[in-house]
């Protein structure tokens, strides 16, 4: 028996918004520790990894490890039937072929119950090696979304450069080019770009903006985002989900032909 209670539906709604454009179907792997999801997009360029700790949820139980095969679009639609503040319970019996959703209104005067059919999903699980990154940049998630959106109007790719001066995002297209630079300066006043850079080596890498745009759908989950880069390895983009867990995205770099 698996059962997880969220004080508000909004976390689950935001998690689904942050994953459904990359992944159609995914196994939600539930264990005594919590809920984990790992899935690649269909072109095998990016990967999303979600972790929610059971002991940080309103309540959680999972006696036997269980993989719940979920169509992300269907789950998104069912969660739209909940108000953001509804207490939300998701439940599945061992060997069940459905997941049950219960939404309770704030005043506890309305209860809705939905059942969603589960799927058998053959998923490939990738081992992600522990990586010491050359540069880790913490910045406002809103600012990151803005930069990705702005540079997407110029080109398909972004070149990210991190050095001791700061981080620069650059895009080139048929009609022109653009760059956005953020300075790393811990002594500046509050209200400035509020960016911290942990740097051991300068890096310069190219990435497809199309995928970064999908990643920025996670911005409502966290005020901050962390970008971790090393030469010739996938970029890691992480959004913390309060104390409950995180959503991490990995994106393979582009290489010059």
């Amino acid at each position: 028996m698996f059962e997880a209670t969220f004080n508000q539906a909004s976390i689950l709604k935001q998690v689904l918004e942050a994953t459904k454009d990359l992944v159609n179907d995914a196994n939600w792997d539930c264990s005594a520790e919590g809920i984990a999801l790992q899935a690649m997009d269909s072109s095998h360029v990016s990967l999303v990894s979600l972790s929610l700790r059971g002991d940080e949820l309103a309540s959680y139980r999972c006696e036997n490890q269980i993989s719940l095969g979920i169509n992300m679009n269907t789950m998104t639609k069912i969660l739209k039937c909940a108000e953001n503040n509804d207490r939300t319970i998701i439940r599945a019996d061992d060997d069940a072929d459905v997941m049950v959703f219960v939404f309770e209104s704030e005043g506890r005067d309305k209860t809705s119950k939905y059942e969603m059919k589960l799927m058998d999903i053959d998923s490939e699980h990738l081992g992600i090696p522990e990586q010491e990154y050359s540069a880790t940049v913490q910045m406002s998630s809103k600012e990151f979304s803005r930069i990705v959106r702005d540079l997407s109007t110029i080109g398909e790719n972004v070149e990210i450069t991190v050095d001791k001066e700061g981080i620069t995002f650059g895009a080139k297209g048929e009609s022109g080019s653009g760059t956005v630079s953020l300075k790393s300066n811990p002594s500046v006043d509050e209200g400035s770009s509020n960016i911290t850079i942990d740097l051991t080596d300068s890096v310069k890498l190219n990435f497809a903006l199309r995928y970064l745009t999908f990643f920025t759908k996670a911005a409502p989950l966290s005020d901050n985002v962390s970008l971790s880069l090393s030469a010739d390895v996938p970029l890691m983009v992480e959004y913390a989900i309060g104390d409950v867990g995180f959503i991490r995205y990995y994106l393979a770099p582009k290489i010059d032909d």
């Binding site: 990967l47 790719n157 770099p253 582009k254």
Partner: peptide
């Protein structure tokens, strides 16, 4: 133009 790498070149199937 840069060519897109495949993620599976970096991560191994487990």
């Amino acid at each position: 133009t840069p060519v897109q790498n495949d993620l599976q070149e970096f991560f191994t199937l487990v």
